[in-house]
Amino acid sequence: MRKEVMGSHDYVQTLKGQKLRFPDFDHLLRTWPRGMSPHYEALKKIHEEELPQLLGPGSKRLEAAIAAEFSLNAATWWPTSSFDAVRFASYLVAWLYVWDNETDSPEFNQDVCLNLEAGEKFRAETREHIKAYLDDGNWGRYRQRPRTEKISSALASFNPVGEPAAFRMTSGQRVLFLRQLLRFVQATAYEQRSELSGVAPTIDEYLPTRMGTSGVETISACIEYMVNIDLGDCLRADPDIQTIYAENNCIISMMNDVFSLRRELRLAVLYHEYQDLQPAMGQIYEIVKASVSRLDSAAERLLERYPDRRGDLEAFITGAKTMCTGNIQWSIRNKRYNLGFSKCDGTAEIVI
């Protein structure tokens, strides 16, 4: 049954004062690899220098970007990747955050957020900008056109992502990356329609859209590039590879809904059903637990069926898993979420 949306302010008032205990995600992922990139400090300095130029010194956009700590995100998600790859990943995450803020945060762009027609125009411009880098049919035109056009910071923030992807990814990797980028952009349209309708989505409606708007699939599409392998089109299309992509997306997206609760209140969809955050948190944990099991099973099947590709597959699987364990580290430590605890071991609590 649908329930009326009360709006963000009313949600805050309804949830205010509730104590929430976080699940034991550390134990759930205890056997999965984790680490910290040795390039973290260098990457952090680069962001400190370049983000003000991209987003404007002293701007709200810059303030939000600094709090999200993109360099820490990339360093924890990709602990063994090269400097160039980690830098690429950090700018991809930066673009996802900056661009998404333009479409769902009125404090950054009220005209786009509160007007579906303006949102659709912005998404159309975004698709064209992305395709100019990654669509093989457009790439030649991009290289020849003058690079003096005036574009918004949200679009310009894709440039440090598009250029290395265009030059360094294989054709098959670019196709996958482009497809997931376009899916992310389209998913935000569904989300915007839902927000502007004034009606809360059901859980069944929410989850598929959330899997697109989280941006995780967009990042997962770069696993091969990040760990310096090329699975090839046939292996890339294998059902178990697709399972790893899907479960990886579910694990991180659901965890993010938990960790970002104070900031984004996405758990309110489950709250509508249970009228209590703790059961909603338990439901999220069960969803993540099932996804972890399915990902592990798919990984085992792949290694059994393709012994001749074991090295590449192990790198791919490890990359998917460090995204998940890194997400816990980054979420606990970044200033955007401001959680105030150092472990997610089943004892950590916050008050909303």
Rank of each mutant, 00 (worst) to 15 (best):
D136F: 06
W139G: 05
Q144I: 07
Q144R: 08
Q144Y: 01
R145H: 02
E149V: 12
E149I: 12
K150C: 04
K150N: 12
K150W: 08
I151G: 06
A156I: 01
N159M: 03
V161W: 02
E163Y: 07
A166D: 12
M169S: 07
T170G: 10
T170L: 01
Q173T: 08
R174Y: 10
L178P: 02
R179I: 10
R179P: 02
Q180I: 04
L182N: 08
R183T: 15
R183K: 15
F184K: 00
F184V: 01
Q186K: 11
A187V: 04
A187W: 05
A189D: 13
Y190C: 07
Q192W: 14
Q192N: 15
V199G: 08
P201L: 00
I203G: 03
D204A: 07
L207M: 11
P208N: 12
M211N: 11
M211F: 03
S214A: 14
V216I: 14
E217W: 08
I219H: 10
S220T: 06
Y225Q: 04
V227E: 04
V227S: 02
G232C: 00
C234R: 07
L235Q: 15
R236L: 13
A237N: 12
D238P: 09
P239K: 11
I244Q: 12
I244S: 12
Y245H: 13
N248D: 15
C250I: 14
I252A: 09
S253C: 08
M254K: 10
M254R: 07
M254T: 03
M255G: 04
N256V: 13
D257R: 01
F259C: 11
F259N: 06
S260H: 11
L261R: 14
R262D: 11
R262M: 13
R262E: 13
R263M: 10
E264R: 05
E264G: 02
L265E: 02
A268T: 14
L270D: 11
Y271R: 05
E273R: 00
E273F: 01
Q275E: 00
